[in-house]
Write a protein that binds this DNA or RNA. Structure first.
Lengths: 234, 234
DNA sequence: ATAAAACTGTGATTCAAATCATGATTTCTA
DNA sequence: TAGAAATCATGATTTGAATCACAGTTTTAT
C-alpha cells in the first residue's frame, strides 16, 4: 500500500492537519505510514456518543456535523467539521467518553490514527502536544462565542453570524470580499439546529436577507454574500 | 513572608488545584513559593477582556463570574468560578487574548502564578501539562452541555439544570440528597444572564418551582432542593 | 425516467417569554 | 440606624418566534 493518501491527490493528508505542521518532510512521512483511510456516505455516522473512539480522526474530504440529541427530541449541532478539521483528540488524553454524535452531511473521507500509534507519536515528537493544546483552546473560543450568540443575541444576529462563519470556513478573505459563492454545509433544518431556532425561521430570515440585498441564494445550497458589512453589524 | 497561603488557613492553596494534585509534598511547597496573593472586593474586576493576563489565577475564596458584554448591551455569563477553580491557563500556552471579563460576585481571594514561573514549573514537572489538557477537556464538555441547554432545551429545563449545577458546585452528594441549603452564586439577573433569559422569567420560574414543592427558597440567596429527581427529569 | 422521499416556502394561529410598569424587599453605606 | 440604592415580585401587554398546515420544489433511488 502506498504511503501517500490517495484521496488527497498527490499531497500527504497529514500535512493538512495543524497539529503536524511543525514536523519536517521525513517526519511527516513516518506519520503517514500510521494512517488508515475510510469512507462514509452521506448520512452515515462516523461516531456515536458514548462509543469508543478509535483514535484521532481527520476529515480529508466532505463535511460532517457533531450533534447531540436532547431528551426532548431536538438536535443541537455543536461543530461543523470541514476538511482539515479533526476530532477524537479528547480520547487520546483523557479517559472520558465523548457525548456527541458525528454524521457525514455529504460523502466524507477520513484519515485515522489509532490511539496507540498516536501516543507513540507524541513521545517521539512532543511538540505535537502543544499543537493539541492550541487546538483545544481554539475550540473553547469557538464554543464561548457560540454561547454568546445563542444565549444573548437576536435571531437576526445569529443568522448573520452563522453565514459569516460558513463563508470564512469555505472561502478565503479575498473571495468573500468579491462576493464569491459557496456551498452551505447544512440544509435549512441543520442551520436551525445549529443556532437554536426552527427551520421555518431560517427560511424566512434568509429570504428577508435576500430581499434586502445582503445575500443572494443560488438554488438552496449555494449562496453569495453581497454585503459583508451589513452581516457584521447588528 | 510565609510560604503557606494564609488565606486557606493552614493548608496550601496549591494543593486544592487539580493541576498540582500529582505533585508530592516537597514539590508542592516549591510551587507555593511562586504564589502571590491578592484580594478583590465584591464587584471588582479580576480581569478585563483583551487585557494581558498575568498568569494562572486560582480562586481561593469567594466566587467570580466570567462574562461577555454583547454589542446589544446584554451580558452573557460563560463560567462561574468557585474556590479551587482557576483561569488564565490559556495565556500560558497560546499567544491569544482572552475575550471575556472576570468579576468578583462576592469578596474574592486569589492565588497567582506568573506566566514565567509557570513555564519553568512545566519544564520541571511535565505531568502538569497533561493535567491542564484534562482541565481544558472538562471545560469543553461543560461548554458543550451549556450550548445544548441554551440552544435546544426549554426555559424550564435550563432553570432546572442551573440549580443542579450550582448545588453540585456548592455541596457534596450527600448534602444534596438530604436537601441541604446552599447559597446561589448569582442574583436573579445573573442567573438570567447565564441561561439566556430575563430576570423576570427567573423570578417567575423559581416561584413556580417553590409552589410545586421542588425547591425551597430561604430569603433570596439561599435555596434548598427538596426534590432532586423532579429537577433532573423534563 | 419516474415515483418516492426529503426538503423548502409561506400563510394563519398560538404561545411563551420579553417588555413595560410599579411597588415591595433587601442590602448597602454614610 | 436611616436613607439610598439595588434587588426582587408580579400584573398587564406586546411581540417574535414556534407551531400548524399544506403546497411547491428538489433530491434520491430504482
Amino acid at each position: 500500500m502506498s504511503e501517500t493518501c490517495i484521496n488527497c491527490g498527490h499531497s500527504l493528508c497529514a500535512r493538512r492537519v495543524p497539529i503536524f505542521s511543525k514536523l519536517d518532510g521525513k517526519e511527516i512521512e513516518s506519520v503517514v505510514t500510521l494512517i488508515r483511510r475510510k469512507h462514509f456516505d452521506k448520512g452515515e455516522n462516523l461516531f456515536f456518543e458514548g462509543g469508543e473512539l478509535q483514535g484521532l480522526i481527520i476529515i480529508n474530504r466532505g463535511r460532517a456535523k457533531a450533534y447531540i440529541n436532547t431528551p426532548e427530541g431536538k438536535e443541537q449541532i455543536l461543530h461543523i467539521f470541514f476538511p482539515g478539521d479533526f476530532f477524537g483528540e479528547k480520547s487520546l488524553f483523557v479517559d472520558k467518553k465523548t457525548e456527541y454524535n458525528v454524521k457525514a452531511v455529504e460523502p466524507v473521507d477520513i484519515c485515522m490514527i489509532s490511539k496507540k500509534d498516536f501516543q507513540e507519536l507524541i513521545k517521539k515528537y512532543p511538540g505535537i502536544t502543544s499543537k493539541i493544546l492550541q487546538e483545544l483552546v481554539n475550540r473553547i473560543d469557538r464554543l464561548e462565542s457560540m454561547i454568546e450568540n445563542i444565549g444573548a443575541k437576536s435571531v437576526d444576529s445569529r443568522i448573520n453570524a452563522v453565514l459569516l462563519e460558513f463563508a470564512q470556513k469555505s472561502l478565503d478573505e479575498n473571495q468573500i470580499d468579491s462576493a464569491a459563492q459557496f456551498e452551505l454545509p447544512l440544509n435549512r433544518e441543520g442551520i436551525a439546529n445549529y443556532i437554536g431556532v426552527t427551520r421555518e425561521t431560517v427560511s424566512r430570515k434568509l429570504n428577508l436577507l435576500q430581499e434586502e440585498g445582503v445575500i443572494q441564494m443560488i438554488g438552496n445550497k449555494k449562496i453569495k454574500i453581497l454585503d459583508k458589512n451589513r452581516l457584521k453589524s447588528e
